[in-house]
Design a binder for these strands. Structure first.
Lengths: 152, 152
DNA sequence: CAAAATTAGATTGTGCACAATTTAATTTTT
DNA sequence: AAAAATTAAATTGTGCACAATCTAATTTTG
């Protein structure tokens, strides 16, 4: 039985989405050995980056920053708490909210993490400018993708 | 207690990895409603793209193409089999290998899937050329990231 | 040829992602 | 103020990712 060849637009190598997906997973894989000594997974590292910038955020605020929902964050934060890096407690002003605060150990981990981005940058073989351009293109793309479908 | 501000290179918004990670997840999210009528998840769609290009690959070959290991592919392929889209059977030449073949239903799903990339392209607000450039930059980045650390 | 090494796939266990539902607290409406 | 609506987290369930281990088949070596 004869079968027409795959049209170009269905070829894997043509897909921007796959290029993104593959790049993102490769990146995560490269972070893994750097983060393992810190006892962090990659998503946990992202949460810590946010908290090092601004401590005492609620789960909701963390979620907004990272585009993750409570179904992802709640168990992740419990693991960070179990590791002694953060505390979680209900706000008294609004008991629906849970505030995440760095512990002393969580805060001091920032020193150790400080080398991680340098180590990665070195691995990338991209100039600071190239990295910046690519990053900004991706941010633009994400913004475009997140627009509601009825817009434009 | 005073605390020094986060150094620039640890800021979330500076991270290329986060830009990638966020873009990749946004992309997947946008595919979801398009793939749901086909009964496919996004990774399942990627597997189908590969099989539509070349049927009868082994798990290993699929894994090479998609950069996924058997721990991910085996259960995914079982779900595709349960959905009636592929068959799995041991090769007689080498019984270690499992060959994945499209069923008639799996093959004919390609027609329905044909609109998906068009639908996405329209959503992106990128010219074909821009998309191509970004895709190729990401492929280059992935290749760079996957080089063994001792190279260069 | 037999032992050792390699290879393919499956399995197990951990940790995301995310939809959907639930619970409890707060806000808005009537 | 009471009822209705909204909101924040947590919970439940499914499906990836991926490390580590296991089993069985094949290949390489001595």
């Amino acid at each position: 039985m004869k079968r027409p060849p795959t049209p170009d637009h269905l070829l894997l190598d043509q897909q921007l989405c796959f290029a993104l997906y593959a790049a993102s997973r490769s990146f995560t894989g490269l972070y893994r050995p750097l983060l393992e000594p810190l006892g962090l997974t990659y998503p946990q590292y992202l949460v810590m980056l946010v908290l090092w910038e601004q401590d005492g955020l609620t789960v909701r605020e963390l979620g907004q920053r990272l585009q993750l929902d409570s179904g992802t964050l709640t168990p992740l934060l419990k693991r960070l708490q179990a590791a002694g890096l953060v505390d979680r407690q209900r706000r008294t002003e609004d008991e629906r909210e849970v505030e995440i605060r760095l512990t002393v150990a969580g805060l001091s981990l920032r020193e150790q993490a400080s080398d991680v981005p340098k180590c990665m940058a070195q691995r990338l073989q991209l100039s600071h400018g190239q990295m910046q351009t690519l990053r900004d293109e991706l941010k633009r793309l994400t913004r475009q993708l997140q627009r509601s479908p009825t817009e434009d």
